[in-house]
Write a protein that binds this DNA or RNA. Sequence first.
DNA 1: AATTTGCGCAAGCAAATACTTTCATACAAT
DNA 2: ATTGTATGAAAGTATTTGCTTGCGCAAATT
Lengths: 125, 125
Amino acid sequence: MEIKRDVFQAIADPTRRKIIGLLATQSMNLNTISENFEITRQAVSLHIKILEQCNLVSIRQEGRERICEAKLEKLNEVHQWTEQFSIFWTKKLQVLKQVVENSPKTPSNLPGNQMSQATKNTKIR
Amino acid sequence: MEIKRDVFQAIADPTRRKIIGLLATQSMNLNTISENFEITRQAVSLHIKILEQCNLVSIRQEGRERICEAKLEKLNEVHQWTEQFSIFWTKKLQVLKQVVENSPKTPSNLPGNQMSQATKNTKIR
DNA sequence: AATTTGCGCAAGCAAATACTTTCATACAAT
DNA sequence: ATTGTATGAAAGTATTTGCTTGCGCAAATT
């Protein structure tokens, strides 16, 4: 239930990203997931545990099977984090660079971001 | 120049995400970046190297300084990967679940995703 | 009742990660 | 020329990661 793990860390592993893609299409049990990978069932089980720990997957017991269901709302966190930098892959970038580099001492005319703490003691050379 | 590292892995580390946020506001040299963190300059230098290896940061020499500049287009890859699952944090989810679970054998009525390979030998129990 | 299936747990291991400290080098300022 | 500054490179270390093999157990099938 509790979040013990960073969602960014969870999706860092390519196998886990594949598992996510797999479960997004439909829920399935652990063995069925494992059949899609070269690694052992136990290894997959570990990945699933990690995904569960950061609420990307929920598991329900059904007889002796454990059905894994994607619950990817948490990925919104990642989506939003990247969103704030989307300016870097749009045409606005050129304009922005000019604005920032030509304005004398106001690097704060950027769209809202989450770096207030990190930036607060930045020394401008 | 070449991509030696996964961008998902690069942003898995919270320190690197902070560095990205920092550099997004303005370019700065290595020491200035380090001043924003508790860890040593060398540790930051390593993080920068990793960010450089997956093209999230470019470095130009200026006298004895190395100016690090954000070059975050690569984050678009992450943005798009999460985008395909955005259905999970919108109201469409409820509807989708019904559609998928009530249609007998067609889990392929999902929006385009990149799991063709992973899914191709999925056994449906 | 015996066997198969689905799965967790634990121990072990090699490699990677995230640092550190120490040293060396090149440019800059005095 | 000497000193200070910005940095890399290397070596060492503790921790984490991703995986394996081997075991046991409970539910399902025969």
